[in-house]
């Protein structure tokens, strides 16, 4: 077997799920759920094959990158081109979505906007860090592993808090919940 055969096999199994998904999407496959199942199985196989060819660490990166790049190629192949509509009044705007867009970026007052920024930004970041340190303390792993898990989870929890706060016009309940959770966490960490 040639030395680069596993790489080619991995590449083919990365491309195949996208081809199958595209077929379902274009309604060419009658067995929708079965096809999705096969696509998932192929993707799992591709991860394993990439790992075999390149080791787990590089293999995971290659598997996901190959899937992304194949999907973009499939999207590009599927593109439709129309002449550009220039007149803005002729735009087929969805009034509901348009209203959300305008509403979401409209702030009632500057202090409220600043408060939201502070809460969704630095304060929820700090809260995320403290809450994760407290959660990490409960994990059945050693201190070093706890710290690194906290370090990786920190931006994810911060992101979730920011989305939670920014998704509401009135964010007092979210603010109070996050602050209470972080105070509770400080208490837990201290005692």
């Amino acid at each position: 077997m040639p030395t680069d055969a596993p790489i080619w096999l991995a590449l083919v199994t990365s491309i195949a799920p996208i081809v199958l998904l595209r077929a379902i999407w274009r309604k060419k496959s009658a067995y929708k759920f079965a096809t999705i199942g096969i696509a998932l199985a192929l993707f799992t196989a591709s991860v394993n094959l990439w790992a075999k060819a390149k080791g787990w660490e590089f293999g995971l990166v290659y598997a996901f990158a190959a899937t992304s790049l194949t999907a973009w190629i499939a999207v590009a192949l599927n593109h439709e081109r129309k002449p550009r509509l220039r007149n803005s009044s002729s735009l087929r705007m969805n009034p509901k979505i348009n209203a959300i867009g305008k509403q979401s970026t409209r702030t009632k007052t500057l202090p409220v906007a600043l408060l939201k920024f502070l809460m969704a930004g630095p304060l929820s970041g700090l809260a995320a860090c403290i809450i994760l340190l407290a959660l990490g303390e409960a994990l059945p792993v050693n201190r070093v592993n706890q710290l690194v898990i906290t370090g990786i989870g920190f931006p994810i929890l911060w992101a979730a808090f920011s989305v939670w706060i920014c998704s509401r016009q009135a964010f007092i309940n979210q603010t109070l919940s996050i602050l209470s959770a972080s105070l509770f966490s400080v208490g837990f960490l201290l005692y």
Binding site: L21, R22, A71, A76, H79, E80, R81, L85
Partner: peptide, 16 residues
Amino acid sequence: IFKEAFRLKLGGQKRL
């Protein structure tokens, strides 16, 4: 997210 997984309409309305 799934319904439009492979859709790409270039031209037409700029927003879309």
